[in-house]
């Protein structure tokens, strides 16, 4: 079935900034083919924050790297399509992609220290992308960099301009990354675990900044994280990934109030509650995350699932509407409505 038709009933094109349709990605090694992404479908609209959650190795970073076509050499998109602001970029040559990156679409990584050049003052590094993509005078550029530093909450921007990455704290460096990402007024920012390396007090500052950027510029944001608290704080919509599949997608309130996939439900139940004293055993999902190169036929979650049936071992469930607005799940026996898909 076409997911696109159900998810975007009206006003189809104008507002969709990123559309990923039935995306497949494979690794081609000497001795093996591994399918790492299994037919992903999602869209991000103008001014929307989509949270992509999942555990280590489930394919979150590959999804984001596919969206800007910065894939490892041995990775190949083997099916589906990626559209940026209405235009397909699936087969766009690298030269044209270079014009888009840092311009229409930009990226923030987990470890700013590795993404920043240690030998160049941070202000200069922000300026680089302006030189690359915008034809403005030197003085204007300087001024723009100072504005950007200010807008991401860096005190004394004139002085900071000349500092090197190692002279800044982790939180400051992440602010620099965000300023760089904002430099050319992108339509879409992809933030891959932007706060994972930070302490919670600094994380909360950076999450506020991300929300603030969306408010001010109506930028669309794809935020990748393994932390369900981070998603609850910033996202409008959530996609849950498991072993290279999107297994559930819904608006943020709907997802947390009515988790439909047994995996989503299991994850939410396994987190201890910070607000109460609970003495019993924690709920947990049995087993561990499967190896992508050894996925079983049928549903990728079958070996850990409480609802598993014979059908799950044979047929891989596709994302289908749950019956609630904007809520899709890939499961033969979802929570709350065991009739779906039968």
């Amino acid at each position: 079935m076409s997911l696109e038709s159900t998810m975007q009933p009206i006003n189809k094109d104008d507002d969709v900034v990123l559309a990923v349709k039935d995306l497949f990605l494979e690794f081609d090694n000497f001795d093996s083919h591994v399918t790492a992404l299994h037919g992903l479908n999602f869209t991000i609209r103008r001014g929307e924050i989509l949270g992509l959650v999942g555990e280590s190795g489930c394919g979150k970073s590959l999804t984001s790297l596919s969206s800007i076509k910065l894939l490892p050499k041995n990775a190949k998109i083997t099916g589906g399509e990626i559209q940026l602001a209405g235009t397909s970029i699936t087969h766009l040559p690298e030269k044209a992609m270079k014009r888009l990156r840092g311009n229409t679409i930009s990226m923030i990584f987990q470890e700013p220290m590795t993404a920043l050049n240690p030998l160049i003052p941070v202000g200069k590094q922000i300026e680089e992308s302006l030189i690359l993509h915008k034809k403005i005078s030197r003085a204007k550029r300087r001024q723009r960099v100072i504005e950007l530093l200010q807008s991401v909450g860096i005190p004394e921007p004139e002085a900071r301009y000349h500092q090197f990455p190692y002279e800044l704290s982790g939180g400051m460096r992440q602010r620099i990354m965000i300023a760089m990402a904002l430099a050319c007024d992108p339509k879409l920012i992809i933030a891959d675990e932007p706060t994972t390396a930070l302490d919670v007090t600094i994380q909360s500052q950076i999450l506020d900044l991300i929300k603030d950027i969306r408010e001010r510029y109506q930028t669309s944001i794809l935020i990748i994280t393994h932390d369900l608290g981070v998603v609850a704080d910033v996202a409008d919509k959530v996609a849950v990934m498991y072993a290279g599949h999107i297994v559930e997608i819904a608006t943020v309130h709907e997802l947390y109030d009515h988790p439909s996939h047994p995996y989503t439900k299991g994850l939410l139940n396994s987190i201890p509650d910070l607000t109460t004293d609970y003495e019993g055993e924690l709920d947990s999902i049995k087993g561990s995350v499967p190896d992508l190169s050894a996925l079983p036929a049928g549903c990728p979650f079958q070996d850990r699932c409480k609802n598993v049936s014979e059908k799950c071992r044979v047929q891989n469930p596709q994302l289908a509407p749950t019956g609630h607005a904007d809520h899709f799940v890939a499961c033969w026996h979802p929570i709350g409505d065991e009739t779906i898909g039968k």
Binding site: Q203, G229, V230, H253, Y256, L268
Partner: peptide, 8 residues
């Protein structure tokens, strides 16, 4: 500062 896993 710890984000709670419930949006509301």
């Amino acid at each position: 500062a710890v984000p709670l896993p419930h949006p509301e």
